[in-house]
Nucleic acid binder design. Structure first.
Length: 842
RNA sequence: GCCCCAGUAGCCCAACGGCAGAGGCGGCGGACUUAAAAUCCGUUCAGUGUGGGUUCGAUUCCCACCUGGGGCACCA
């Protein structure tokens, strides 16, 4: 760290410095003194009695992966600004904390140490909780929760069963993403560039029987309701969700597959966004890995298809997704009939068509789709352009044309433009009963089962006679089996729970016969999809939450967290909320009204990492500079959503500022009850302007600018004491108290200590936002700018209420103006009294 | 390839369409000191990525491009 030596000097100088009569700024003493006071006063607990308007501020709850790090420090500092501000504004603020305490790392640690995941998990939670207390986040500790507590996950299970009742949870066998390292399945959202999001291993496909949530049923609402979030959520998060949901409008078209060599005729539907190009279809492709391919293939080509499918299966996800790879495929020996023109198209199987998207089959229009064109050129299939875009013929150029143009070679569509042709072709399909307008989504159902131990057991019993049976509500929670630890949890491709034979064996709730528990556990994103609801009534025993409490607090007024959850957690939580709304349990359709993505804390332009050796230890920073200085550094460095580069900031400077602010407290000599209104007008105006502006800045999340304003206020107050109206002026007290309240949002210890130094009683947390006197915001004189053709030529001190004519007259008298006009005629004068005059010469 | 965001001083960053600079870092100078640290005071530095457009006036609005960051991507 570049200013390390300065810091040491600063810190070690603490005990001896200062003039004899003055205390020195001692952050360690403050950190020792105030937490118990706050606890006794219970200032961070909401009254929850309806006496004041409620506001819910929430930080994404942490995963207990060790002690807190710099990233936590930043995120929670941001959330705390909002919570503390709203409290000062008189709202009843709910600001809770809990832990997302199920998950793989605990299990891996347990295997390595021959321990139980709970031991590691709860030890880490204790460590983090202690650090959070030191860090003085203003949360209501009485509402603390952990998703791995049976009293929490019984309700996760209850919710699963409610989804199951509504057919929103179902089990199906299908090819799923499989991580060979973690030995478990992954949701689509957890596969990043063909790799396991968690460990980076290349993901493969496995055909397994797994549980899903039917999130696709909510695709439309998840998309539409984003309108409400517009302007309150970051654009990029909304963009990512839209992208992920992937709505596309188009048409279904049904192609008849001709009967052939003993195989009956049948129909196969395709999805296309370009029904206008139907006449340009020259072949037909089905996904190689789909059942459809096997069903369609003619006997003669069956062996070839088998070989091809084997070949496709052996490819990793990364290889398969590469767009560089040449097109491959096999002819299936069958023909499809174009519903519009009756043309016979050869049917192929290829891996560039995805089984899971659309219908798993496409009509190939090589002239106007690059992928189809690549395929056509690889297998020498015909290319027929049906939209004249004025570009080179795709058959010659090898470049598919996708722009606007006029339809050709297309029968009744000829001469139409693209948009008209899309409508006309779709209408024709509908008339012919061969298709219809439709909307397709990229979003797939959420695969929620995991073959791991440390998670919420799926409350289903498999009975040989009755099939899937829900565990009756009164038997919840289905707790994890006791006594499993260490190696017993090692991944084997099947769930570790399967080895707990006594646990697995149960009697069927329906028939009483011998049955088996489902041995999978839930994705931990299920746990976190409803925790924000539990906080409203964390000890409620008769359901996942008290409906009234939830409807009083929710939706969350301000959610704070990293952008890494842009699609996973946030999409799932939105989905849960909508389902709960449909169940009548909540009265809102979106859980988080506003979202703030804090940036990351990096060091030297790069993410902190062990391998780079550029990690910064939060504990060391706190020891060296104090909690407040670290918090202030995070907030002052940049706007909340930008990254903070620890190499670019100076916590020692933050500490210096805090000390300067805190020292104001010892210079104020007026009594606590002095009449502020009798104070120095100039300083008072500064105070009121600062407070007024700070409020606006916080509303627009410009916390860094608020800190700058607080610095200005401290400077102005210092000047007033040393070379202005002096320490006894009531305005100095007013200013110092305003500093304390402003600081209470960022630097809780310094603020509280300053407040006490000023003779006020704890706590500054509930001191209330200073009332702004509008009179003091009005300036008596103002600097008017005189421009000639937009360039500043003079400045005039004028009364704030000057009239336009008067201001114009003054401006025209200016020597600088006449010099700059240089005899030219005046064409026009623009006046914005009292701030500006712009003279436009002819 | 498509989508989103951002480019202001040596650095981090401010600036309702109206004086480009509020705050801080760093640098420089000074006060205090035997000296240094700490503290305090003062001071330096850009015309806003590029090119157009709208406007009396553009960092701000519009268009195109460049650079950087991020997301999606064989999604029919």
């Amino acid at each position: 760290m570049k200013d390390k030596h300065r810091v040491e000097a600063f810190v070690s100088a603490q005990p001896e410095t200062g003039q004899p009569a003055r205390d020195s700024y001692d952050f360690a003493a403050m950190e020792a003194k105030w937490p118990s006071v706050w606890e006794d006063l219970r200032v961070f607990e909401p009254a929850d009695d309806g006496s004041r308007e409620r506001r819910y501020v929430l930080d994404m709850f942490p995963y207990p992966s060790g002690d807190l790090h710099m990233g936590h420090a930043e995120a929670f500092a941001m959330g705390d600004v909002v919570a503390r501000y709203l409290r000062q504004r008189g709202f009843d603020v709910l600001h809770p904390i809990g832990w997302d305490s199920f998950g793989l790392p605990a299990e891996n640690a347990a295997i390595k140490r021959d321990a139980h995941p709970a031991e590691w998990t709860y030890a880490n939670i204790d460590t983090q909780a202690a650090s959070f207390r030191r860090y003085a986040i203003s949360v209501d500790w009485s509402r603390r929760l952990h998703t791995s507590d049976p009293e929490y996950y019984r309700w996760t299970q209850w919710l699963f069963l409610k989804f199951y009742e509504r057919s929103l949870a179902y089990r199906r066998k299908s090819p799923v993403n499989w991580c060979p390292y973690d030995q478990t399945v992954l949701a689509n959202e957890q596969v990043v560039n063909g790799m396991c999001e968690r460990c980076g291993t290349a993901v493969t496909k496995k055909n397994l029987n797994q549980w899903y949530f039917k999130i696709t049923e909510y695709a439309d609402r998840l998309l539409e309701d984003m309108d409400q979030l517009e302007g309150h959520w970051p654009d990029r998060v909304l963009a990512m969700q839209r992208n992920w949901i992937g709505r596309s409008e188009g048409a279904h078209a049904r192609f008849a597959i001709e009967a052939d060599a003993g195989l009956p005729g049948r129909e196969v539907e395709v999805f296309t966004t370009r029904p206008d190009t139907l006449y340009g279809a020259t072949f037909f492709v089905v996904a190689a890995d789909s059942d459809l391919a096997v069903e369609l293939v003619a006997a003669e080509q069956a062996a070839q298809l088998d070989d091809y499918r084997e070949q496709v299966k052996s490819l990793s996800e990364i290889e398969r997704q590469s767009t560089e790879r040449p097109k491959t495929g096999v002819f299936l020996g069958r023909y499809a009939v174009n519903p519009l023109n009756g043309e016979k198209l050869p049917v192929w199987a290829a891996d560039y068509v995805l089984a899971e998207y659309g219908t798993g089959a496409i009509m190939a229009v090589p002239a106007h789709d690059q992928r189809d064109l690549d395929f056509a050129r690889a297998f020498d299939l015909p290319v027929r352009a049906v939209l004249d875009t004025g570009e080179a013929d795709p058959a010659e150029s090898g470049v598919a044309t996708t722009g606007e143009g006029t339809l050709v070679n297309s029968g009744f569509l000829d001469g139409m433009d693209k948009t008209a042709a899309i409508g006309a072709a779709t209408a024709k399909l509908e008339d012919a009963g061969a298709g219809e307008k439709t909307v397709n989504f990229r979003l797939r159902d959420w695969l929620l089962s995991r073959q791991r131990f440390w998670g919420t057991p799926i409350p289903i019993i498999h009975c040989p006679d009755c099939g899937e049976v829900a565990v009756p509500e009164d038997q919840l929670p289905v707790t994890l089996p006791e006594g499993m630890r260490g190696e017993a949890l090692a991944p084997q491709g099947t769930s570790p729970l399967a080895a707990a034979e006594d646990w697995v064996r149960v009697s069927c709730p329906d028939c009483g016969g011998e049955a088996q528990r489902d041995t999978d556990t839930m994705d931990t994103f299920v746990d976190s999809s409803w925790y924000f609801l539990r906080f409203a009534s964390p000890h409620f025993a008769d359901g996942p939450f008290d409906v009234d409490a939830v409807n009083q607090w929710m939706p969350v007024a301000q959610y704070v967290g990293g952008v890494e959850h842009a699609i996973l957690h946030l999409l799932y939580s939105r989905f849960f909320t909508k389902v709960l709304q449909d169940m009548g349990l909540v009265q809102f359709n979106e859980p988080f009204s506003a979202l703030l993505n804090q940036g990351q804390v990096i060091n030297g332009g790069k993410a902190m990492s062990k391998s780079l050796g550029n990690g910064v230890d939060l504990g060391e920073q706190l020891d060296a500079y104090g909690v407040d200085a670290v918090r202030l550094t995070m907030i002052f460095a940049s706007p909340p959503e930008d990254d903070v580069d620890w190499a670019d900031v100076s916590p020692s400077a933050s500490a210096r500022f805090l000390a300067r602010a805190w020292r104001l407290g010892q210079d104020v000599t007026s009594a606590v009850d002095v009449d502020r209104a009798s104070g120095d007008t100039e300083l008072r105006a500064t105070v009121h302007r600062t407070v007024n502006e700070a409020a606006e800045l916080i509303n627009s999340h410009k916390f860094n600018v608020v800190v700058a304003r607080a610095m200005e206020l401290v400077n102005a107050t210092r000047k007033a004491i040393d070379s202005g109206p002096g320490p006894a002026d009531p305005a100095v007290r007013e200013a110092a108290e305003a500093v304390a309240v402003l600081l209470s949002l960022f630097a809780p210890y310094t603020a509280e200590d300053l407040w006490a130094k000023l003779g006020r009683e704890a706590s500054v947390v509930t001191a209330g936002w200073p009332r702004v006197d509008e009179q003091l915001l009005v300036r008596e004189t103002i600097t008017a700018v005189v421009q000639v053709q937009g360039k500043v030529r003079d400045r005039l001190q004028v009364p704030a209420d000057i009239g336009e004519a008067e201001l114009q007259a003054l401006a025209l008298e200016s020597e600088a103006v006449s010099r700059s006009l240089d005899g030219r005629q005046i064409r026009k004068v623009i006046i914005r009294a009292p701030k500006l005059v712009n003279i436009v010469p002819a």
